[in-house]
């Protein structure tokens, strides 16, 4: 059984304390604000949207593309209605303003983190982090999925992404903004993108990780004329 589909205005509960994201309270009742899947917890009710744009939040990790280099800031497209700003001081090492485009130029892709978002939706980004995960992406490929479907690519506590990485044998990073970076050999990247498209088309259905397993098995078989057992050779 999948989750129930609700539409804006649907009455969800008479107990206003359970109002979660994607809901609103009017006249002492909780109603759906979004068209999506109903998520009923014990103490809350929320609606998981099926579509929508990415709205940046502090500490989100996102994949961005440099669109402009200004005096002391890089302007970054983060697949959102709001542009990201990467200040020169947020680059991992000290660089001169004249040298900015030697390090990051227009068109470069970066794995970055949202440092802060203020009330006027000024989005500050950073490339500084402890474990040096944030960086410029110099190889691999980037594909995109609706940000609302992004959680399904990760799966419950990372089960889906782990499956994809190990079964396909590629490196992957899923940004909160729906952009996905994949690295590996060309055909592995192709397969990973197919898998992402499959998730996108079935994001509203339950038991996705199990079906992904079957999907990858079938794909590998048809593609290489070999069975799953000979996986090592692949």
């Amino acid at each position: 059984m999948g989750k129930r589909i609700v539409i804006p205005g649907d009455l969800l509960s008479d107990d206003i304390r359970v109002s979660g994201s994607g809901t609103y309270v009017a006249d002492g009742a909780v109603r759906a604000a979004l068209y999506g899947l109903l998520n009923e917890g014990e103490r809350y009710i929320s609606v998981i949207p099926l579509a929508g744009r990415y709205i940046p939040q502090t500490s989100d990790r996102v994949i961005g593309v440099i669109t402009e280099v200004t005096y002391s800031n890089w302007i970054v497209d983060i697949n959102s209605p709001y542009d990201g700003l990467l200040h020169i001081s947020q680059y991992p090492r000290r660089i001169e303003i004249e040298q900015m485009s030697r390090y990051l130029k227009v068109g470069d892709c970066i794995l970055t983190m949202v440092k802060d978002v203020d009330a006027s939706m000024k989005v500050e980004l950073t490339l500084r982090d402890k474990d040096r995960e944030l960086r410029r992406l110099s190889d691999g490929r980037i594909t995109a999925i609706s940000p609302t479907k992004m959680p399904r690519v990760i799966g419950r506590s990372g089960s889906m992404i782990r499956l994809l990485k190990s079964e396909i044998g590629c490196n992957m990073f899923v940004g909160q903004n729906g952009r996905i970076w994949i690295n590996g050999s060309e055909d592995r990247i192709d397969l990973a993108i197919e898998a992402v498209r499959y998730i996108e088309a079935n994001a509203h259905t339950p038991g996705l990780t199990d079906r992904m397993q079957a999907f990858l098995k079938a794909k590998k078989k048809t593609r290489f004329g070999k069975t799953h057992e000979n996986e090592e050779e692949w």
């Binding site: 589909i5 068209y35 099926l50 050999s185 055909d187 079935n202 259905t205 078989k221 048809t222 004329g225």
Partner: peptide, 29 residues
């Protein structure tokens, strides 16, 4: 609205054009 997502449920794993066995398919690695 309800129908849209009832219909989009893709249960079958579409195995379009299964590559003939033995066909070398650009596995460069």
């Amino acid at each position: 609205l309800i129908e849209k997502y009832s219909k989009e449920y893709t249960t079958e794993i579409e195995d379009e054009d299964p590559a003939p066995a033995g066909e070398p398919e650009g596995d460069a690695d």
